[in-house]
Structures are given as structure tokens and as C-alpha cells.
Design a protein around this nucleic acid. Structure first.
Length: 190
DNA sequence: GACACGATGGGCT
DNA sequence: GCCCATCGTGTCT
């Protein structure tokens, strides 16, 4: 299987967010392999974006978004849910792409076990659920997607034209259509 | 140190 | 549709 290389992520954040739709996310642990086709992402454009954790410049948490593209940025939301982002920006900038939903492919049983639900629709729809199904936690913060147990396949499958909308759950930045998704039953909302 | 605040989701109505 | 748990992080003192 061919996986995405560093140069794929070393492009403008918006471009990478759209390009990730249709690619497959892979996650290997001692429990087994799970995978899913990415169907929903959001771009967080670093210091240009009031909604990005990187907006006010680097902090211990956000420093990773200023670092080399192709690494994972994981943070804890509301004390109980993890959110997985992929660092993506052109040289000298900052930014990351939030993974919001995937269409489960391999390892559905393992995902169901981790999630505690049976419905395939609820396995990885929403950033918190996706992280739970893929066993992504703060321990994976900084992981290199081009070298480790989490990676993204280069092959792209699109079942419908990519749509855009405002991002979900924000105060600021509601006027920018920086959410990308493939309309269908696997995305978190229309 | 203290404190306010979520890029959410599960449960209940 | 409404309510709210829960804790790492950033900001202020």
C-alpha cells in the first residue's frame, strides 16, 4: 500500500483539507488494524484563523502546528473527547486539518468494541467518536503519519462531489466555508 | 496557584 | 432539542 508522503501535507491547509477527502486512514495497534475512508474535514489556518489554536502564536500545546507537516496534533475537548488533526501548511506557516468523520472499512468489530455501539453509522462520525474508534489519544500527539502506526493511503475514492460549509461548533470564523465533506450517511451533518 | 473555557457527545425529554 | 459532565490549556494574579 502506498501512503501519502510529506510533500502532500506541505501545501496550504485548505488545499490539504480538501485533498484528504476520499483517502483512507489506517491505524495499527496490538489489538489489530482499523481503517476508514475520510469523508469530513475542517481546515484550521494557523495565525490567520481566530478559531485555530495557533492563532495567538505558538504555545506548548500549539507548537506542533508550527512544526513540520504530516504529524498528528491531538488535543482533549470538553475533558472527555479527543480530536485528531493533521499538521498541514506551506513552508514557514502554521495550520492543521481536523478529521471529523470517516466511513469505516476494515476492523469494524474492533471499532464497535472500542465505541460500545453496534450501529456502523455511529462508529466514527464526529471527531470524538473517530478518535475513540481509532484509539487515538494524547499519547499519539506528534506522531509522524509518514512513518508510524497511523498513516493515510494515497489512493482516493470519491462517491460524490465534495461540498463545503461553515465549520461546526465555533464562535468565530463562521463566515469561512472551511469544512469539506462528501455528502452521505457517514458525515456528521448535512 | 486559581479560574474560566471549550474544534463534543451521550442521555433524557 | 436541551442539559451537562470533565480536564488540559491558556491567561491572569
Amino acid at each position: 500500500m502506498r501512503t501519502l508522503s510529506r510533500s502532500f501535507f506541505a501545501r496550504p491547509t485548505l488545499q490539504v483539507a480538501e485533498s484528504l477527502i476520499g483517502r483512507t486512514l489506517y491505524r495499527l495497534t496490538g489489538e489489530g488494524l482499523v481503517s476508514g475512508r475520510i469523508v469530513e474535514t475542517e481546515a484550521y489556518c494557523g495565525t490567520d484563523d481566530p478559531s485555530s489554536h495557533a492563532f495567538k502564536g505558538p504555545t506548548p500545546r500549539s507548537a506542533i502546528m508550527f512544526g513540520p507537516p504530516g504529524h498528528l496534533y491531538v488535543y482533549l475537548s470538553y475533558g472527555m473527547h479527543h480530536c485528531a488533526n493533521i499538521v498541514a501548511h506551506s513552508s514557514g506557516r502554521a495550520g492543521a486539518v481536523l478529521l471529523r468523520a470517516v466511513e469505516p472499512a476494515e476492523g469494524k468489530d474492533l471499532m464497535a468494541q472500542r465505541r460500545g455501539v453496534d450501529s456502523p453509522m455511529l462508529l466514527a462520525r464526529g471527531p470524538g467518536r473517530l478518535c475513540r474508534a481509532f484509539a487515538v489519544s494524547l499519547a499519539d500527539n506528534g506522531a509522524d503519519l509518514t512513518a508510524g502506526a497511523i498513516s493515510i493511503g494515497a489512493r482516493r475514492v470519491l462517491r460524490a462531489p465534495i461540498a463545503r460549509s461553515a465549520r461546526v461548533g465555533l464562535r468565530a470564523g463562521m463566515d469561512q466555508p472551511w469544512r469539506f465533506y462528501e455528502p452521505g450517511p457517514w458525515t456528521s451533518r448535512p
